[in-house]
Amino acid sequence: MKYIKYLIIGILFGIVMTKSEAISWYRIQEMFRFQAFHMYGIIGSALAVGVLMIQLIKRRKLKNIEGEPIQFNNKQFSIWRYLLGGSIFGLGWALTGACPGPMYTLLGNGFTVFIVVIASALLGTLVYGLIRDQLPH
């Protein structure tokens, strides 16, 4: 039962991602070609509201449903892992028109072949785990 809330939040997420067309390969192309404001509007307004929400959580010291204070893990600063890893992800984002969230949501939208994209992403994650000691972080 404790998981049902996550299922409902996930359903909301899947509907929002579909109806906003953020899962659209065409929209991602439009974004990377700077030919419409749509995707920038989505990310920008999510961020504007997100910054306010996190400030509110921190200042009011809000607690989660379990009664524990909501904590944020600060990301450890470095350049290479974010720049290089991020760029490789960017290549995949433009190719498939999907980041991890949309990969799942597209499956529900009937693009069943995305199960293969997810399987490839699992393989990519696995290979990263195998060679991560050789990579700059």
Binding site: G85, G86, S87, I88, F89, G90, L91, G92, W93, L95, T96, A98, C99, P100, M103, V116, V117, I118, A119, S120, A121, L122, L123, G124, T125, L126, V127, Y128
Partner: peptide, 9 residues
Amino acid sequence: GGFCIGFGT
């Protein structure tokens, strides 16, 4: 494309 997503992220 999928591989890059998993590896890069």
